[in-house]
């Protein structure tokens, strides 16, 4: 009797999980604020895609950029993302949208080091039906991939990154929302009121940082570039400004920049260096070594826009 009830419990649970799975799948796709859902649903057409982790996301404002360059751009970057993460976003974009002419990809020594940024599996929980996405998720997060086959576990596994987006998806569904909160993909840097101020940050910055080149990062960087090139997109690497006082603590920074340059060359990609431009000396422009404040973001977008106009559009 009791054992029978126990099995009944398990069956009821599995049934409920399957229902939840369907509900999450449906409503997460309605959330216009997640880029994966947005780029898969609406019709977009841009000349330039900006891609990478939080630095370009918070630094390059397409609206400001477009006013300088005269072409249309979209910021596809997402915080904490590595190249595998970036690759899936680009893949999804190209699957549903017209290919852009240019892809501007953020790359610094940090991008090649496993300690900085990561693969954010939860962003793809909804897209595991696509075999390309699934195989990358399997490679980057094998444990998750194994469990994701059980009903609903693909959402439950990283519930802290999913639940809110689900609730927001429900809201967007009833609002019949078509546009995201950040329409051009750019998110202005938040005022870091609770954060350490920059002088403390320099103190806290580890002395003698030694970057380690990660082959997995390199693999997905190459994969991303080759995929874009196959679709006829011109890819450009750019290095964004580094808060100057921290450069001296980065032991093998120069070596890494060289390495990136060589990689770019072998891929026939331009590498634009903005690492030590004048704005990187002013601490008002930064709230961390690589992240700019709103002021810094405006200056950089301006610099970048001019550079694009001169070097990319006048060729």
């Amino acid at each position: 009797m009791m054992v029978k009830k126990f099995f009944l419990l398990i069956i009821a649970l599995v049934f409920c999980l399957i229902l939840l799975d369907k509900a999450f799948q449906f409503f997460l796709r309605q959330n216009m604020n997640t880029k994966m859902a947005y780029i898969s649903r609406e019709e977009l057409d841009y000349d330039l895609l900006i891609h990478g982790p939080c630095e370009p996301l918070w630094m390059i404002n397409p609206t400001q950029l477009d006013s300088i360059t005269g072409i249309s751009s979209y910021n596809l970057a997402l915080s904490h993302s590595d190249f595998a993460d970036n690759f899936i976003h680009l893949y999804q974009y190209l699957k549903h949208q017209k290919a852009p002419k240019y892809l501007l990809l953020y790359i610094t020594p940090e991008s090649m080091d496993l300690r900085y940024n990561k693969f954010n599996t939860y962003r793809f929980a909804d897209f595991l039906a696509d075999s390309t996405v699934a195989s990358i998720v399997e490679e980057m997060d094998p444990l998750y991939f194994k469990w994701s086959k059980l009903p609903f576990v693909r959402y439950a596994y990283y519930s802290n990154f999913i639940n809110f987006k689900f609730v927001q998806g429900v809201k967007h569904f009833f609002q019949k929302r078509k546009t995201p909160y950040h329409e051009n993909g750019y998110e202005a840097p938040a005022i870091q009121a609770w954060h350490y101020n920059l002088s403390k940050m320099v103190e806290l910055y580890p002395k003698n940082i030694e970057f380690k080149w990660n082959s997995m990062r390199e693999k997905y960087l190459i994969k991303l570039v080759k995929y874009a090139q196959k679709k006829g997109i011109k890819v450009i690497f750019y290095e964004s400004p580094v808060f100057a006082p921290t450069i001296s603590y980065q032991k093998n920074r120069g070596e890494f920049i060289e390495h990136i340059k060589n990689t770019a060359q072998s891929l026939a990609v331009d590498f634009w260096e903005f690492g030590e431009i004048p704005m990187s000396k002013n601490e008002e422009n930064f709230f961390s070594t690589l992240n700019t404040t709103l002021k810094g973001s405006r200056i950089f977008t301006d610099t970048l826009g001019k550079h694009i106009r001169q070097n990319l559009l006048c060729e």
Partner: peptide
């Protein structure tokens, strides 16, 4: 027992920390 067990299991799946 049955209903509380069921609710606990669902809550684990909805709000539990798995990773």
């Amino acid at each position: 027992r049955f209903s509380i067990n069921f609710i606990l299991l669902l809550l684990i799946f909805l709000f539990g920390i798995f990773d």
